[in-house]
Each structure stands twice: as structure tokens, then as C-alpha cells.
Amino acid sequence: MDIDLITNILYAMIRTGTPLLIVALGELICEKSGVLNLGQEGMMLMGAVIGFIVTLLSGSLLLGFMLAIIAGVLMSLIFGLITMELSANQVATGLALTIFGTGLSAFIGSDYVGKPIEGLDPIFISGLTDLPIIGRMLFGQDLVVYLSFILFAAAYWFVNYSRPGLVLKAVGENPHAANAIGLPVFKTRYLAIMFGGAMAGLAGGYLSLAYTPLWAENMTAGRGWIALALVVFASWKVGRVLLGAWLFGLASILHLVFQGLGFSVSPNLLAILPYLATVVVLVILSSNQARSRLVAPMSLGNPFYAKG
């Protein structure tokens, strides 16, 4: 295998892993608050279609990304209203949100399928981009990839070292106890849900504005589900989300790698690798009950009713 091939694989791995990383960070924060939102796919698609249309009409990528994020947040607010105010089942609501987002984005975007836009360009950092092997991977990417590095570091600090992060974990573990000591359960969960929506919108926008700058129906192609698996794979630890996102990114370009090496393996077969990895991690986690009970946020998926 020559250096060029490795450089390209690493570059593509990060690029493919970036939308996964962004959505998974959002979902992880959301789940840390005890809310399981299965609507990632729907929120991503809405972000993708809105971002694409806005950029196509205005010519501004910045505006496109901003509205993609807003679209994701609005979608997550639908989820928030239904699960928090009306105490509906989170799983059912999340699934409905995905179906809703898939349909609505296809409807809104039907006139824009296949139209071209100028996508986001990579930014080269002089000196660093030319480093062998890792230069292209870490310093030859576009702005959103760099942003994902910053988001990752911020999320890592937030969950592990900040006071609001502590509140987030407390709310996700035992919302009743959190309420009893005066922590704002509703506000925390709303913010976490909205952050999840914003990240899904951004990741969706990244797909239609940078990764493949065009709109196609259902273009997220299951990345929202992979992100959900990724959070479990990472056993709700921010650090492992980064590792997982890039690994999953690598898995989804493996067929190109194999082609480069002269094998031919069906990409469909390779597409199951992330899920297979998730199942393996789940089995490892649940083999030790002591660990399995402490990894997931304890009240994940449970609605919170304020009493009194």
C-alpha cells in the first residue's frame, strides 16, 4: 500500500466520520439528560434540505448552515413539546419524527433534486497540510470538519469538567432527585434536546453543502441510525464517540480501500460493520452487570412528571 493511498483513506475516513461525529455528540448530550431521541435521521434530513435550498437561493453557504441548524432545532422542539409537555413515549415520538422528517424533506426538496451548488471548499493550512500521512487528514479539511474538532473538545470539557455538565448527568440519572434539590429538570432536558437538534441540523447541512453538494431524497442514508448506535458503542463517553465516529467512517469507505487493494467485496456487506461492532460492544458491556448498570444514563427514556 503506498503512502498516497493511506493519506487518502485517512482523509476520507475523517470526512465521512465528521457528520457521524456531529450527530452523535448531539445525541450523546441529549441522552445524558435522560432523553432518547430516535428522530436523528428526520432532523438531519430537514437540516440537509433547508440548508441546500437556502444556499441555492441566496448563494450563501453561511446562511445555509445557519438555517440548517435552525431547522434541526425546530424539529427537536416538536419532539420536546410532545415528550416533555405531553409526556408522550420518547421512542414512539422519535420514530415518528424520523418518518415525518423523511417525508417532509422529500416534499420540500422535490423541486431541487439534482441541482448543483458550489460546495464548501477545504481550507489548507500552510505548512501543516503538507505533512506526510496526517497532513491531509487533520489539516486539509473544510471548515465544518475543523468545527467538529472544536465541538468535540467543548463537549468533552462540558460533560466531564463543567458544572452544567454535572447537572446534565444528574438530571439523566434521577430527574426526581434533581428536581427535589432544585435543579431545573425541564430546562436542562429542553436544552439538551435542542442541542441534539442543532447538531443533527448541522450534520445534515454538512451532507448537502459540503460532503456531496446536492440534494437527493433520503440522502442521509441511515447516518442518523448509525449515530444512535455510535452513542451505545461509545458507552456514553464523549472520548469514545470521536474514536467510534472515525472507525465507523472508515468502515463505510472500506469498499473503496479494498478496491484500491484489488479485492472486491460488496459494499452492502461492509455497511453492516458499524452495526456489528455495536452489537459486539453491547455484548461486552452487558457481560459485566456491574458495568452495564453504570454506563447508560439511569433514567434514559423515562418521562419526568413534575409532582405537586
Binding site: 434521577n174 426526581h176 432527585a177 434533581a178 427535589a180 439511569m298
Partner: peptide, 8 residues
């Protein structure tokens, strides 16, 4: 019923 967070 204690209002403590077990994992913290």
C-alpha cells in the same frame, strides 16, 4: 428516599 445520584 434519598435524593442522591448513584454514579456521582
Amino acid at each position: 428516599h434519598f435524593s442522591l445520584f448513584e454514579t456521582l
